[in-house]
Design a protein around this nucleic acid. Structure first.
Length: 536
DNA sequence: GCCAAGACTTGACCGTAGAAGG
DNA sequence: CCTTCTACGGTCAAGTCTTGGC
């Protein structure tokens, strides 16, 4: 309901306190020794700090990887004095165990702190949040998402990242660009320091930015998802998806026609159907692909497989190097086209070689709406799975099942929780105990026939136990089905929250059962505007 | 018109507060 | 009340998509 701004203008007034910097390095106590080639060695403060980054990760698999060790050692040497450089020439001769043990002891001590000490820390955090965690954007006090600057450490790329282990340097005020409005009070840099720049750009949403040294990319401090500026954008996303709903059939018919096109490029575009997977700089990042950047080696074609015709077998590393493996039956025309695209190519050649994903080719534009399409498709899918069970736990199960169907489609997997089996067994024994109780209650009820009051009590008890048992059983089903599925991403990013809100209202499910506090804050706009007849 | 830089969204992972269980 | 477990939220890497400068 707030005033709309002209195209591109994101705000008129913006004031904040600037970022919170990582705490300065605290040198190790005298007693904690570092050994090189079996001999004690006192490191210079800079070299010591970088050494502690490695020591802190000693138990992690990263420190066994060759690329990680090589990158770390190279960057570590840059921080050493000449003497240290001459002395320390082999990482394998470095002994970080005392450092590592010291940090473990510290974290143990933190756990053992008294209630009062923990309370004190909590209060300090709250104070910091209160002071730096909010800004004023136009007429609202808004929560900032990440007001703390990322501390220095070793870069942890995912998958086979060529830069893993490199030193992520400490960010100083001199690296920081502050963005605020001209009429706002400019945050003051820490004493003795200056900001790199103060600018007043209301065509962007960020408050603070800096350039990180690993990829040379820019990092930002922005607002929380609960903020107006994020909420409006989110809302807009779902509105675009709703508009897509109106023309999706036309688009589909068009690309089905294009499967027959004389022009290879048009065919490729039509088989691809949507755009995902930008080009990446080789050697700068892990080797992962999206559908535009699929290579011949990532698919296998089976004219027949397990009783199905025209099956495409996908096997490729996707975002975060998560493996995508799936066998998908496709229409004959798609299959034949894929065969054509693979002809006379090497495994490492691009499957869709005629499409330039970065080009502004107008004829390709209509397929350039990856999120929109996902949002559209997934929201419909959620809707499709909704059912109306009579009790609330069963309704929630059915909601989660719908959510799960979406997550599976998106390949949102998770490693089963470490304690999964155990917690499942615990739950099962609770169910068994409940069943025993219920059997007892049923027996009591039978033998209570004579006395009306006793019988009434027994009935209530039986009913209550049945209710509790049902809840436990539903919980067990839900947990079992969710073993390897991560619901968060699809719930937070792809499913129109208004559908969820409408569903909750329609079936009398409290919204807190579906969205936790953070999620309710993020979707406040949807909760406010939606009634039970909302249609996507 | 191209494309690198910039902006913004998505996503896995991890530590821990606080709920649940004993 | 103490211990155990798990959901939550923070963190930051890794994507997508837009913009602006040449």
């Amino acid at each position: 309901e707030a005033e709309r701004y002209p195209e591109g203008i994101k705000w008129k007034f913006l004031e904040h306190k600037g970022p919170v910097f990582a705490p300065p390095y605290e040198p190790l106590p005298e007693g904690v020794k570092f050994y090189y080639d079996g001999k004690v060695m006192k490191l210079s403060p800079k070299a010591e700090e970088v050494a502690t980054f490695f020591a802190k990760m000693l138990d992690h698999e990263y420190t066994t990887k060759e690329i990680f060790r090589k990158n770390f050692f190279k960057d570590w040497r840059k921080e050493m004095t000449n003497d240290e450089k001459n002395m320390i020439t082999n990482l394998s001769k470095c002994d970080f165990t005392q450092m590592s043990q010291y940090f473990k002891a510290q974290s143990e001590a933190r756990k053992q702190m008294s209630k009062e000490e923990k309370q004190k820390i909590k209060e300090e955090n709250e104070k910091l949040l209160k002071e730096y965690g909010f800004c004023v954007m136009d007429n609202h006090r808004e929560r900032i998402a990440n007001f703390k600057i990322e501390p220095p450490g070793l870069f942890r790329g995912r998958g086979n990242h060529p830069k893993m282990g490199m030193l992520k340097r400490r960010i100083m005020p001199e690296d920081i660009i502050i963005n605020c409005s001209k009429d706002a009070k400019v945050p003051s840099p820490p004493p003795g320091h200056k900001w790199k720049e103060v600018r007043h750009d209301n065509k962007v949403t960020w408050l603070v930015s800096w350039t990180e040294n690993i990829q040379g990319s820019i990092k930002y401090i922005m607002l929380n998802p609960s903020s107006r500026i994020k909420g409006e954008k989110d809302w807009q996303k779902y509105e675009t998806a709703r508009r897509l709903k109106k023309c999706v059939d036309k688009i589909r018919n068009q690309y089905r026609e294009d499967w027959k096109s004389k022009e290879m490029k048009v065919r490729q575009r039509a088989v691809l159907a949507l755009r995902a997977g930008n080009e990446k700089e080789e050697g700068e990042t892990a080797d992962t692909v999206g559908c535009c950047s699929l290579r011949v080696e990532h698919i296998n074609l089976h004219p027949e497989l397990d009783g199905q015709e025209y099956v495409v077998e996908f096997d490729f590393p996707g975002k975060d190097s998560i493996r995508y493996y799936n066998k998908v039956p496709v229409e004959k025309r798609v299959f034949k086209n894929l065969q054509l695209f693979m002809e006379n190519k090497q495994p490492e050649d691009d499957l869709f070689d005629r499409l330039n994903v970065t080009s502004k080719d107008k004829s390709c534009q209509r397929i350039y709406f990856m999120y929109t399409f996902l949002v559209y498709k997934l929201t419909l899918l959620l809707f499709y799975f909704f059912t109306a069970d009579e009790n609330v736990p069963a309704k929630i199960l059915s909601y989660n099942r719908a959510n799960r169907a979406v997550a599976i489609l998106c390949n949102h997997q998770r490693a089963p929780p470490k304690t999964f089996e155990k917690s499942m067994m615990n739950l099962q024994s609770k169910i068994d105990a409940k069943k025993d109780q219920l059997a007892d209650a049923r027996r009591d009820l039978k033998s209570a026939k004579a006395d009306a009051k006793v019988m009434k009590d027994a009935k209530t008890k039986k009913y209550r136990l049945e209710e509790q048992l049902m809840k436990l059983e539903v919980q067990a089903t839900d947990r079992e089905e969710n073993k390897q599925i991560a619901l968060g991403t699809s719930k937070l990013n792809y499913l129109d929250p208004r559908i969820t809100v409408a569903w909750c209202k329609k079936w009398g499910v409290p919204i807190e059962k579906i969205y936790n506090k953070t999620q309710r804050e993020k979707f406040a706009w949807a909760i406010d505007m939606t009634d039970e007849d909302y249609e996507f």
